[in-house]
Write a protein that binds this DNA or RNA. Sequence first.
DNA 1: TTTAATATTGAATGAATATTCAATAAATAA
DNA 2: TTATTTATTGAATATTCATTCAATATTAAA
Lengths: 210, 210
Amino acid sequence: MKNTIRKERKKEIISGMYELSRREGLENVSIAKIGKHLGMPPSLVMHYFPNKRLLILGLIDHILHQYQLIYKPIISKLEKNPRVDPELLVERLFSREWNLLFDDGVFFSCYAFIFRDQSIKKEYKNLHVKLRVTLKNLLDKDEVLVSGDTGLLAEKIFVVIEGAYYYLSMMDEAREYDQKLELFKNQVYDLIYAEINRIQSGKGMYSSGG
Amino acid sequence: MKNTIRKERKKEIISGMYELSRREGLENVSIAKIGKHLGMPPSLVMHYFPNKRLLILGLIDHILHQYQLIYKPIISKLEKNPRVDPELLVERLFSREWNLLFDDGVFFSCYAFIFRDQSIKKEYKNLHVKLRVTLKNLLDKDEVLVSGDTGLLAEKIFVVIEGAYYYLSMMDEAREYDQKLELFKNQVYDLIYAEINRIQSGKGMYSSGG
DNA sequence: TTTAATATTGAATGAATATTCAATAAATAA
DNA sequence: TTATTTATTGAATATTCATTCAATATTAAA
């Protein structure tokens, strides 16, 4: 099938672009460099991606797909348990196995596009909403939590996770990194336990909760 | 003084660069464009910033300085109160007055550099640590909170703020934005009230706090 | 005023940029 | 097999890029 080679070539080009961005930074990647990296003339790159914007959109699709994949094994392992084990949940959500698979530099370079490209903004948003829904569904499996506001809890958890990675990316020393990481994990624990407490005491003890 | 004109010219150039980055995106800014924008030959730009890296470092300095300035009036207003009013604190920390003064697009474009430039990473980190220390000092003024772990509380509050702005930047509709914003504000309230409760009950009710 | 340092200009550089085009090779459909 | 579509090549385009340089203007120090 002709479509096969086309799809594979496009994948190959985007993967090459991603590798280059990782090494040299997105701002230093050009069509010629991508071609050289893959051993093809720049005109072939442009045959599949007629302009640079499409190339960037392709890269973003790729990255967001990867980003989603990272959470898949984490979620699927958690899904096997009948109840939500807060400790396990937090451990998995903050696990940085993916650091080897995923480059935050490219991710944030692309993230910056959301401020001047509406369609990129939408793509980013969709992913982030999707992750929250997945977590909500997971929380809903817990017999206690299900009677609370799991959607709200998922939002609260993810805002900590995302804020944490934004901040943790600035850390150099492993010790400091681990220390802060522990702190944010605790912060998520507290969110879960507070929600459980709220449900079991039948009434909100704090201001939040709808 | 000769140094005066030099400093002012450098400022002028960086400001021009910032304006251009805001309008067209950092990746589309060139030395020639900066010169054109300011009515000076590119060679003059390079007289003050002998290469592009220095220009980018200058821009980042500028942005981080601006970012810090945003918090200044917020903090100074809060400092006048003898006790910490959680509602006022949260309202001010999440106030988006600065949106008119500050461009998140340029900020995140520059943020992406931390992953490949150690000195930029350090600069970003310094600023973020500084903001946390400022908040801690503010919390220490409160007669109740001072006997708790205000440093920890400040970390927890900022991770929500930063995660919130990362996520909120993806929102298009004002209603959705406001709704999420409210949610994250509540999340910060809860952190403060939980800490107050913890102190007043003399003992941690959750796992955190040490 | 003379001297030295800095500010500013404008022209020139070669390399890299995205993109176009015509030509050929390969694969598929008729 | 022939016709047609797609894949691939390589050369060419004008433009923009960061950077250099020599020449001049301005300012401050002697």
